[in-house]
């Protein structure tokens, strides 16, 4: 077995195991950490495909930022397992239905002719000086520039919408104004008073 085949199977096995544990873990913090492990292993798989830009951005964005915020929230939760299990029987058929539906859809897509192996062809091995980042960048900013720009604008819109929805000024909250804080002078805070000593000794 070639070395990179072995590496592939190791990454793939850990990825599948981690993905299974994400949904079977009782503790949400453990589940989130298994999701991090899954991301790291899929980044490894992408590296094997010479897609180093995608692999690094997956680690940078999802592992380094998104999952940190996820963990941040999950760690603050007070998890009560019995309470979580209470609705299990009621919601199980619904969840099962959605799961089966998703599975059927995925099977239909993956088994369709557009995704079959003879459509794609063997991946080409590139020389060591081939830059995946450069190739990706030149395609993104020439052939797909409109799609890319539209996606960027939609994301920006989502950011602004999220801020607009959560931004509210409450009259009872007191805000700090750093500009006023730093411009305070000694005279504003301290008043020195001259007075004669009261007790004469």
């Amino acid at each position: 077995m070639a070395f990179d085949t072995l590496v592939f199977y190791v990454f793939a096995a850990v990825l599948v195991f981690a993905a299974l544990r994400v949904v079977t873990c009782r503790n949400p913090v453990h589940a989130a950490l298994f999701l991090v492990l899954a991301f790291l292993n899929s980044a490894g798989l992408w590296l094997l495909l010479e897609a180093e830009f995608l692999a690094m951005t997956l680690v940078l964005v999802y592992v380094g930022a998104v999952m940190v915020l996820f963990l941040f929230v999950v760690m603050m939760l007070d998890v009560n397992l019995t309470e979580m299990r209470a609705g299990m029987r009621r919601f199980a058929p619904l969840g099962l239905g959605v799961g089966v539906l998703l599975l059927v859809e995925m099977a239909l897509i993956v088994r369709s002719s557009a995704f079959s192996a003879d459509q794609v062809g063997d991946p080409v091995r590139h020389a060591a000086d081939y830059s995946n980042t450069k190739a990706l960048g030149s395609v993104l900013y020439t052939d797909y520039v409109y799609a890319f720009e539209i996606a960027a604008v939609i994301l920006l819109l989502a950011i602004i919408a999220a801020i607009a929805l959560t931004l509210r000024k409450r009259p009872e909250t007191r805000y700090q104004d750093p500009a006023r804080q730093v411009s305070v002078r000694r005279e504003d805070r301290v008043r020195l008073i001259k007075m004669p000593a009261e007790k004469r000794g």
């Binding site: 690094m56 951005t57 592992v63 963990l71 081939y130 830059s131 995946n132």
Partner: peptide, 23 residues
Amino acid sequence: DASILYILALTSFGVYGVIIAGW
């Protein structure tokens, strides 16, 4: 080729040691 990306990815991973230790 992508050494800056590699450095960024790894330094962003460093925060996990701190978070997991705290939790």
